[in-house]
Write a protein that binds this DNA or RNA. Sequence first.
DNA 1: ACGGATTGTTAGCCTGAGCCAACAATTTTT
DNA 2: AAAAATTGTTGGCTCAGGCTAACAATCCGT
Lengths: 172, 172
Amino acid sequence: MDRSEFYTFSGYMKKDDSRLTASMEDYLEMIYRLSQENGFTRASSLSQSLNVQPSSATKMVQHLAQLGYVQYRKYGFIMLDDKGAEIGAWLLKRHTILENFMRSIGVSENSLLEETEKAEHMFSPETIRCFSDLLDFLQADAAFAAYNAARAKNKKPAPQQPAEPANNRPQK
Amino acid sequence: MDRSEFYTFSGYMKKDDSRLTASMEDYLEMIYRLSQENGFTRASSLSQSLNVQPSSATKMVQHLAQLGYVQYRKYGFIMLDDKGAEIGAWLLKRHTILENFMRSIGVSENSLLEETEKAEHMFSPETIRCFSDLLDFLQADAAFAAYNAARAKNKKPAPQQPAEPANNRPQK
DNA sequence: ACGGATTGTTAGCCTGAGCCAACAATTTTT
DNA sequence: AAAAATTGTTGGCTCAGGCTAACAATCCGT
């Protein structure tokens, strides 16, 4: 049995070295959101919006600038470069598709944002396309509407999954 | 506009401190797979199956032992503890559900394993339930069968997504 | 126009999960 | 049973992306 295509999570995440990291994507996506009003944003808004310390935002913005995604000079505005803007737009679109899809299949508003934010980084454009197409299909499918209505009724459809196994990690 | 619920990817991943990390889950899932034949496995199989160096496997196994997920003594067998076995079973189930779901909505075999492996860590049991239920529904839905057949025909349904933006990261 | 408040940056540290090189234990072969 | 081969472990390093503390720049009110 050939299992050699399995990797650990970090194995996968490191594998394509020519890719933005998940965090870089988050920063770019947020810079894009925040720039929609004014065409730029600043370190403070960014750090607030992402719930990181200002120093972390500074560091990442400098990094993104170095790679040519944003224009940035110390203490100045953060402005997306062409490359950055194109990617930012795509990232936001990707987020939106996934979020809509997840909502429409019944993921509760509680977990929706967090899980979308975590999962969006994991899918290729082709897979996002699958979600998007499926969503379109479902919205036009009468049977699905019925399924959905039924599911909404049974608030708690019986705990079938092992209800979140009680882990404990280094309880520092 | 209150954006304070956004976090970076690492922000989210670190947030619930009482959870297995994605890599821990991968090791546990693989130990579970490998134990199905014999009831145990060994460091070498584990490191081969996950494409990590032996030293990395050793380290993680020691860690998991310390937390009570596996039984392990230097140079010995790796055996799942009760807690570990329960979680391992769930992780494998989660994987299977997600993989089946993704396959059935048209994700190509090419990306299927990798994206499943990456994404599985991101979803709560409730969300996995949504996927599972939806999959059941789809398999019984005639309209979906038609949709699927149609999609299979148009091999390349026109590149609509920005076709994987050309990034470049630290080209070390 | 200057002094305090605010905002941004730097430097240095931490953590998880890898890696490699050196060493230790175990197993196999002779 | 001793030597050789294999397998597993240790220690110390790297890297991303956080953090804090200390410092620097900019902005605002008088």
